[in-house]
């Protein structure tokens, strides 16, 4: 049946797809059973021939062409159905992979935000230091000038005594006024820092809360999809890259030697 052979062959080609070994491995396939195109073709032909022989049927040319056509159509239908199922599965797999990727990114971002939050919580506010910007310095200078003017004009310094006394009183008053202004600035600065610090913590906590919710939602979607399609996605590691010894570990030097020894012993086992 040369015509049927050609048709079946073409149908298989039309409805099949190529896939790399790597892709199969990625999908978790470790062993596959391969069926060559010619084998499929041969099996169909043999099946048709066998049925005809078993039923003791002899067909004239027209009938034979009819059977060939029906077999061909049925085969096409089955292949199309199979391809539809495969496409459906592929689409789910893609969706699943996208969700997994999103989950990984969310996890990473969550980790980063948690590190930032931890650092912000640990940051100590310096209540004893005073930081002034250029504008702030001009402002303080203006206020000191106003304060000195006020002191002099309000009679806060008694000029009826000797010059030295007058200067000393003036100096004391100016130091007092300056101290008050700077102390006020220090407190304002500290409060501002504290406020910023609290705001930042609150903001990070809100962000982490949102990320956790996204993460939980994504995890939920993954679980649902996995359940419906019978996919076991596994559980993601917390590490995106290879780790290694923490250089800040005080025993890192010693541990490095231990790890080298373990490696050498294992290398010897491979020989």
């Amino acid at each position: 049946m040369p015509k049927l052979h050609t048709q079946v062959l073409q149908a298989i080609r039309d409805h099949s797809f190529r896939v790399s070994v790597r892709k199969l491995k990625q999908q978790g396939h470790r062993r596959i059973t391969a069926l060559r195109l010619q084998d499929i073709q041969q099996l169909i032909s043999e099946a048709v021939e066998r049925v005809l022989t078993e039923r003791d049927l002899t067909l004239d040319k027209r009938e034979r062409v009819g059977v060939e056509r029906e077999v061909h159509e049925e085969f096409q239908r089955l292949l199309a159905e199979h391809q539809r199922v495969l496409k459906d599965h592929e689409s789910v797999t893609h969706k699943f992979a996208d969700l997994q990727q999103r989950y990984g990114l969310l996890q990473e971002e969550l980790l980063q935000q948690q590190v930032l939050l931890e650092a912000e919580r640990k940051r100590e506010l310096d209540a004893d230091s005073l930081t002034l910007s250029k504008e702030g310095l001009v402002d303080v200078g203006t206020r000191i000038r106003e304060a000195v003017h006020l002191v002099l004009s309000s009679g806060g310094v008694d000029f009826t005594n000797g010059t030295a006394d007058k200067l000393s009183q003036l100096e004391t008053r100016i130091v007092d006024v300056t101290s008050q202004i700077l102390e006020h600035e220090r407190l304002v600065g500290y409060e501002r820092d504290r406020h910023d610090h609290d705001d930042r913590i609150e903001q990070l906590e809100r962000r982490i809360g949102k990320l956790r919710k996204h993460l939980a939602d994504t995890e939920d979607s993954l679980a649902k999809l996995a359940k419906v399609k019978g996919i076991d996605p596994g559980v993601s590691s917390i590490y995106r890259s290879i780790q290694g010894l923490d250089g800040a570990d005080p025993t890192a030097g010693k541990k490095k030697e231990f790890l080298k020894d373990i490696f050498d012993q294992n290398l010897a086992l491979r020989d």
Partner: peptide
Amino acid sequence: DKDHGVLYIGMDLGTSRTSISASNG
């Protein structure tokens, strides 16, 4: 193709029980 991350596994292969701890918790 293993581009997602790294999973570390520690295993205690015992006569009576085998335990594993992994970096995915």
